[in-house]
Amino acid sequence: MNILSHFWFEANIKLSNGKYLVDGKKINAFTNEEEAAVKLDEVVPFRLESKLIERGAKFEKSGLWQTHVTVDERVVTGQNPQSVHAVGEAVLEELKKTSIIKNTKETYFCAKLKFSLNNQDKSCIHSKSSTFHKMV
């Protein structure tokens, strides 16, 4: 399973066949409009949405700051920091399809995340029987 984030490498991962990972996949990420809204569109080396489309992604998006998660095969992407909880749920569902979490009653996911937009420094998701509780 691939868990991608807003980092630049998302658009640059190539498979052994030479194609980009995102080529032909439904993907979402920070949108051009969200980049402009936080005045980063002239700071970042490229707009991620545009680069993903250029690399062959079928880019999906919702409105500014709306939760949006896309799953295509084993690639899970979230649009923005507001999507982190839903991304965790989607990742758990994908992991349940593998041998990694078969027959597991309780699973813990903790990720230290730094979001420059809302100054959060950590987010922890606890899952028991597919019920998530966000603890900050």
Rank of each mutant, 00 (worst) to 15 (best):
Q66L: 02
K39G: 15
N28W: 02
S129M: 06
I53E: 13
S5N: 14
N28R: 01
S83I: 03
K114V: 15
F109Y: 14
F9R: 07
C124P: 10
S99A: 12
N12Y: 14
M1P: 08
L48K: 08
A57N: 12
W65I: 00
K96R: 06
S62N: 10
N28V: 07
I27H: 04
L113D: 15
K114Q: 10
N103S: 10
L21S: 09
L40D: 12
V76C: 10
K134H: 11
R55C: 09
K128V: 14
E35W: 09
K25N: 08
R55V: 05
K97L: 05
L52K: 07
M135W: 09
M1N: 05
K102H: 08
E54T: 14
V136A: 13
N32G: 14
S50C: 04
D72L: 04
N32Y: 05
I125Y: 14
S129V: 04
N80T: 01
N2Y: 13
F30M: 00
V91E: 02
I53M: 10
V91F: 01
L117P: 07
I13M: 14
E93S: 15
I101E: 04
K128G: 09
V44I: 09
T67V: 13
P81W: 02
I53W: 08
F7Y: 15
F115R: 03
N118I: 08
N32D: 15
S50G: 12
H6R: 02
K105D: 09
S116K: 03
V91H: 00
K105V: 00
W65V: 00
K112P: 03
T67P: 11
N119W: 10
N28E: 06
K96Y: 10
M1K: 02
N80V: 02
G63C: 09
V87E: 02
T31P: 04
N17G: 06
R55D: 01
K61I: 03
Q82V: 00
R74C: 05
V76Q: 13
A11H: 11
G18Y: 03
V75H: 11
K61E: 03
Q79L: 02
G56T: 05
K19W: 07
